[in-house]
C-alpha cells in the first residue's frame, strides 16, 4: 500500500481526539472520509501532514516511514476549506509559489505554470489578483498551486465547504478530472454525505476519533451509522420507492 497509517493516537488535555487510527490507501486513489464537526478529521489530516505530532503510531508513505520527517520534506500538501491564496501575489505567482520555494529554474516554472493554468481553465487570468476571481476560480488556483508541486499525497479538509451548491458541484467534477489527469493520491475529508460518496474511490466514516473504512460503497450505504439510510428514508417519504433505487444505482 502507498499510504499506511497504523495505530495513531492523539489526545489534547487528556481528551482523546484520534483513537487507534488504522487505514491504508493505494497510489492514485482518493479516500473520502465522512464525519461530523469535531470528530477528529482535521487532527487526523494534520498528523498525516506532520503539522501535529501523534502520541503513538506510525505513518509510512511510499514504503518509507515519515514519522520524524518535517512537513516541508514530506511532500504532502494540506489544503484548507479556505482557498488561502496569497493576497500579495497574482494568479501566476500563486501557482508558481511552491516551485519558487523549491528553487526550480525559471524556465521550468514558466512552462509548468502555463500548463497548469491551461488545465485549470484559467487562461488570461494569470495577471489578476486573487480578489478579482470568483470563489470557484480561487479554489481551482488553490488546487493548481498544490498539484504543480507533484505531491505524493494531497490532503483536502472540506475544500468545497465555503462554495455555493452549484459551484460546489462543478468543483467536485473538476477535482475528479484533475486527480485523474495528474494521478493524485488524496484524502478527502467532508461532512457532506453525497460529496463523500461521489469523491472517493474508497470511503470511510469517522466518529469520536475512530475511523471505519468500508469495503465498498454499498457496505457504506447499508451501515446505519453513516446516515445514508436516514437520508434515503427522508427522500422515500417524499417520493416513495424511487430514491433508494437511484441512490444505489449511483
Amino acid at each position: 500500500m502507498f499510504l499506511e497509517v497504523k495505530n495513531i493516537v492523539k489526545s489534547f488535555h487528556n481528551e482523546a481526539v484520534v483513537r487507534d487510527l488504522n487505514f491504508s490507501l493505494d497510489a492514485h486513489k482518493t479516500l473520502s472520509i465522512l464525519g461530523k464537526s469535531g470528530c477528529g478529521k482535521t487532527t487526523m489530516l494534520k498528523i498525516v501532514a506532520g503539522l501535529e505530532n501523534a502520541d503513538a503510531g506510525t505513518i509510512s508513505l511510499g514504503g518509507k516511514n515519515i514519522d520524524n520527517v518535517k512537513p516541508g520534506k514530506r511532500n504532502v500538501v494540506y489544503l484548507y476549506q479556505e482557498d488561502l491564496l496569497f493576497p500579495h501575489l497574482n494568479i501566476f505567482e500563486n501557482i508558481a509559489f511552491g516551485l519558487r520555494i523549491k528553487k526550480f529554474p525559471e524556465k521550468e516554472i514558466v512552462e509548468k505554470v502555463n500548463a497548469m493554468v491551461e488545465s485549470l481553465e484559467l487562461n488570461g487570468q494569470e495577471t489578476k489578483m486573487p480578489h478579482q476571481l470568483s470563489g470557484g476560480q480561487r479554489q481551482r488556483v488553490s488546487f493548481g498551486r498544490a498539484i504543480i508541486t507533484s505531491p505524493s499525497l494531497l490532503l483536502l479538509d472540506e475544500p468545497f465547504g465555503s462554495l455555493d451548491a452549484g459551484t460546489r458541484q462543478r468543483m467536485q467534477e473538476f477535482f475528479k478530472s484533475l486527480t485523474a489527469k495528474y494521478q493524485i493520491t488524496s484524502l478527502f475529508v467532508t461532512h457532506d454525505l453525497k460529496e463523500a460518496i461521489l469523491m472517493g474511490d474508497e470511503i470511510a466514516f469517522m466518529q469520536s476519533g475512530r475511523l471505519k473504512v468500508y469495503k465498498d460503497k454499498t457496505d457504506f450505504i447499508n451501515d446505519p451509522v453513516t446516515g445514508v439510510q436516514n437520508e434515503i428514508g427522508f427522500w422515500e417519504n417524499l417520493i416513495p420507492g424511487k430514491v433508494e433505487r437511484e441512490t444505489l444505482r449511483k
Binding site: 494534520k46 501532514a49 506532520g50 503539522l51 518535517k70 512537513p71 516541508g72 520534506k73 514530506r74 511532500n75 504532502v76 500538501v77 494540506y78 489544503l79 484548507y80 479556505e82 488561502l84 496569497f86 493576497p87 500579495h88 509559489f97 511552491g98 519558487r100 520555494i101 523549491k102 498551486r145 498544490a146 508541486t149 490532503l155
Partner: peptide, 26 residues
C-alpha cells in the same frame, strides 16, 4: 493556516517569514 500551508508546500521557516508573513503584515 498560511504558515502551515507554506510548510506543506515545502517552505522552511525563513521562506515562510520572508515570502508570506512579511508581505501579509506589510
Amino acid at each position: 493556516q498560511y504558515e502551515e500551508l507554506t510548510a506543506t508546500l515545502g517552505g522552511n521557516r525563513r521562506q515562510t517569514f520572508l515570502k508570506v508573513l512579511l508581505p501579509l503584515a506589510k
